[in-house]
Design a protein around this nucleic acid. Structure first.
Length: 783
DNA sequence: GTGCAGTTTGCCTGC
DNA sequence: CAAACTGCAC
């Protein structure tokens, strides 16, 4: 049944949709799969469908669930819906998988076998919990590397497996299963859950509780899933629990799955593109709708993306087209060093800005967070405002985690992870030895560290008891207080503020702690806590504030989660990406992963080098390489008007200079869409007429795109770099543009002295003119 | 038990 | 290159 054309609201809603979009939006209430290419208006289709379903009265706000993958996407959806709908959208089941699982478990904590105030472990917490388990089992950390074990446990959970379900084929895997079991016991004892547990626990509760299952299946008539290609096995199974599983003979509700197999970039955390095909088959999707018209990018950008992704195998098949013209060519730049690359980025950014482009419309993308540093310092030194997403996030900073640990202990004193973090921070005379004793006592009696104090005598026992009293006192005195007061009191009473005040480098940390108070304040304002909910504030970056919305009343008692509990949840599920630096018109910096779902007028993709992008850990398997290619595809398709791609001959990594060869992905782009800002070079050693390039014996010479050398570490540029340095000593000349780590870009005015005494006078612009000893100062020439 | 200096080790991506 | 870890003097 199409919409009622007489309804004025819905016809306005549906105006300007293309036929495919319209078909998707108004799909009858049955399972549907939408293959939505990058920039094809996917989010618009999703939000419009939700609004259309609601406005035509086909479903009530409570009868609909929409799941996204990232917090960014969830926010985006809520913001857009908030603008389309006349009522507050916060109460609706719209959020990330993990956010919704949390909400579900908060409401049914008792059935799920959790304490009411269970805490959520982020990956760092989870890793230290694993470490404790391994230590407790007296196992060798060499043989059972905590990181790998944590990885193994998360992987098992994502497959829906409990310790008893894990494949055991040798003593090692046997032990792994035992560690997994011990980890689980420990988490249960402490009342904490990790990310994967949120999913698995809610899945199992639904699976095992028929009444609950019936309740939710009756409730949700429509479930919309964004980024379906990124779902893992468990998430798909979870979905079937809520929607009804056709394989079990259920009649499923209207699941509206939107995805793009070409943008599947989360295989490393269990994503299964195959879920799309499985869904189509299992849910007997009658009509698969493809959205292939791109509204975002100009032709050259799109052609580049299409050409690149066409090298992947086993695609569902889709080709983006646009009606915009070719636009600007894709510009490619080769830098001599990562510093020079940063200097070039800066220069191009300034030029775009002078040309009238907003800084916030420029994005700098990189494969891994470590690359942001050099770029950041270049921007910082030039005084260009920027904003970094991801990396060390706000709620993951050490001082913030310390403060949160105190808050978590107030909520749940059995949270041993938090207990260990702060029992002796700031120092209160409880050293390693005392803590070990306490751990032994607690383990022996099967109690938490907090409870274990009763079995610990002597001065150590007295000191721990004093710590417990501190926590208890804080719990009592903060009862019923506002979040701001609670946090301020904790910061003062714990001694955290005093501690950082005496630290040399403590000022920044104190500022972050103050920022934590602000974040809490903002959180309370936005969430509203049952009172009249406040309209979504939108900051200058177009993003809304925190979106916890986990304030569902308890299913049995009707009790509303305390502000503190809600805030702690918010801190665990959202890393607080937009706490700092919000506001001004700033250049956007993030990893390619973080950029998914976003778009910008100008995009710079940096570090297109073998070993980095594609990442060296990925090139050994075909699957890995294809995922890297999809990642590059995602990166390219973020750009609306201008796309720049850069690579560098050398790069600092692990404190050493690495010599890199340009990425194979550059050779996979269509030449006619490109413009090389620096001379295009063949893989070294393959002069004109040599065809196949050097060092690629596995490929015949006639291969159209010669494979890059097997190793990304080319010895040749290294030799070139050496000879350049040897011939001129320092490689500098007057008027040479240089880059300094601290002062940024400068121009050499004069040179004097030789060898170890060589000095250069450099004008750094806003940092003034300085004489630098070349044996000490690192000056990198910029071409 | 604390704090410092020296040494080692690791950086891929994220809810 | 830095964070994280280890060893040592107070």
């Amino acid at each position: 049944m199409p919409h009622d054309p007489a309804a004025p609201v819905s016809s306005r809603l549906l105006a300007n949709l293309n036929p495919e979009q319209l078909a998707a939006v108004t799909l009858p209430p049955e399972p549907g799969l939408i293959l939505a290419g990058a920039g094809s208006g996917k989010t618009r289709v999703l939000t419009t469908r939700i609004a259309w379903l609601l406005q035509t009265g086909q479903v009530s706000p409570g009868g609909l669930m929409a799941v996204t993958f990232t917090n960014k996407a969830a926010k985006e959806m809520l913001t857009r819906l908030g603008a389309m709908l006349p009522f507050n959208v916060r109460g609706m089941w719209i959020g990330t998988f993990h956010g919704l699982c949390n909400r579900f478990l908060r409401a049914h904590w008792k059935q799920a076998g959790l304490p009411q105030s269970f805490q959520i472990l982020d990956s760092g917490d989870s890793l230290s919990a694993v470490k404790r388990v391994i230590k407790g089992m007296k196992l060798d950390e060499e043989r059972f590397v905590p990181k790998q074990v944590a990885w193994f446990i998360a992987g098992a959970k994502e497959e829906g497996k409990r310790p008893k379900d894990v494949d055991v084929h040798d003593p090692h895997s046997q032990k792994l299963a035992e560690i997994y079991q011990a980890y689980e016991d420990q988490c249960q004892r402490e009342g904490v859950v990790d990310f994967a547990e949120l999913m698995l626990r809610s899945y199992e509760l639904m699976r095992d509780d028929a009444a609950l299952r019936q309740h939710y299946r009756h409730r949700f008539q429509h479930i919309l899933v964004d980024e379906f290609q990124d779902t893992n096995r468990l998430q798909y199974a979870w979905l079937k629990m809520f929607a009804g599983d056709p394989a079990q003979g259920d009649v499923p509700c209207a699941v509206f799955a939107v995805g793009d197999d070409d943008q599947s970039i989360y295989a490393f955390r269990g994503a299964r593109v195959g879920n799309m095909a499985d869904f189509e088959r299992e849910f007997r999707v009658a009509r698969l709708i493809k959205l292939e018209r791109n509204y975002r990018s100009f032709g050259n950008i799109l052609d580049s993306a299409n050409a690149l992704i066409s090298r992947n195998t086993g695609r569902l098949g889709k080709n983006l087209r646009t009606e915009a013209g070719p636009g600007e060519p894709v510009r490619i730049y080769e830098a001599t060093s990562d510093f020079a690359e940063a200097a070039w980025l800066l220069e191009e950014l300034q030029q775009l800005h002078r040309g009238g482009m907003a800084r916030s419309e420029c994005a700098l993308l990189y494969r891994s967070n470590a690359q942001s540093r050099v770029i950041e310092s270049a921007l910082f030194n030039a005084g260009v405002p920027y904003r970094v997403y991801g990396g060390l996030r706000f709620f993951e900073r050490a001082e913030v985690k310390h403060a949160l640990a105190y808050l978590r202990l107030i909520e749940n004193p059995n949270d041993d992870t938090s207990f260990l973090r702060v029992v002796n921070f700031p120092a209160r005379g409880i050293g390693t030895r005392s803590v070990e004793q306490l751990q032994e006592v607690a383990r022996a009696s099967g109690r938490s560290l907090y409870q274990g104090v009763s079995g610990l005598g002597g001065t150590a026992g007295a000191k721990v008891a004093a710590f417990n009293r501190l926590i208890d006192g804080l719990r009592a005195s903060t009862q019923g207080q506002t979040l701001r007061v609670i946090i301020e009191q904790v910061l003062a009473a714990s001694g955290l503020i005093d501690f950082y005040r005496t630290e040399k480098e403590g000022q920044d940390r104190i500022e972050n702690l103050e920022e934590l108070v602000n974040a809490a304040e903002a959180f309370v304002t936005i969430e509203g806590f049952g009172k009249d909910a406040v309209a979504l504030p939108v900051d200058e970056m177009g993003q809304t504030g925190p979106t916890a919305s986990e304030l569902l009343p308890d299913a049995e008692t009707g009790e509303i989660l305390s502000p503190l509990a809600a805030f702690l949840t918010h801190a665990a599920l959202e890393a607080g990406d937009n706490q700092a630096q919000a506001g001004q018109d700033a250049v956007q910096m993030m990893t390619v992963h973080a950029a998914k779902g976003l778009e910008f007028d100008a995009v710079f993709i940096t570090g297109l080098e073998e070993g980095l992008f594609p990442h060296e850990n990925s090139v050994t398997e075909a699957d890995g390489l294809e995922e890297e290619r999809r990642l590059m595809y995602v990166a390219i398709t973020r750009a609306r008007q201008r796309l720049y791609i850069s690579h560098s001959q050398t790069r600092m990594l692990h404190g050493q200079t690495r010599y890199n060869v340009k990425s194979r992905f550059l050779d996979e782009l269509p030449e006619e869409a490109l413009k090389w800002l620096t001379p295009k070079r063949q893989a070294f050693g393959s002069g004109a007429g040599f065809g196949g390039g050097y060092g690629a014996p596995s490929r015949p010479a006639w291969t159209p795109a010669p494979a890059p050398p097997p190793s990304w570490a080319s010895p040749v540029p290294a030799a070139m770099a050496r000879s350049a340095a040897e011939s001129s000593g320092h490689g500098l000349r007057p008027k040479q543009a240089v880059f300094h780590n601290k002062f940024g870009e400068g121009v050499v005015l004069a040179l004097e002295g030789k060898g170890a005494d060589a000095r250069a006078q450099v004008n750094f612009g806003r940092h003034g003119t300085k004489w630098l000893a070349l044996s000490v100062a690192k000056l990198t020439p910029i071409d």
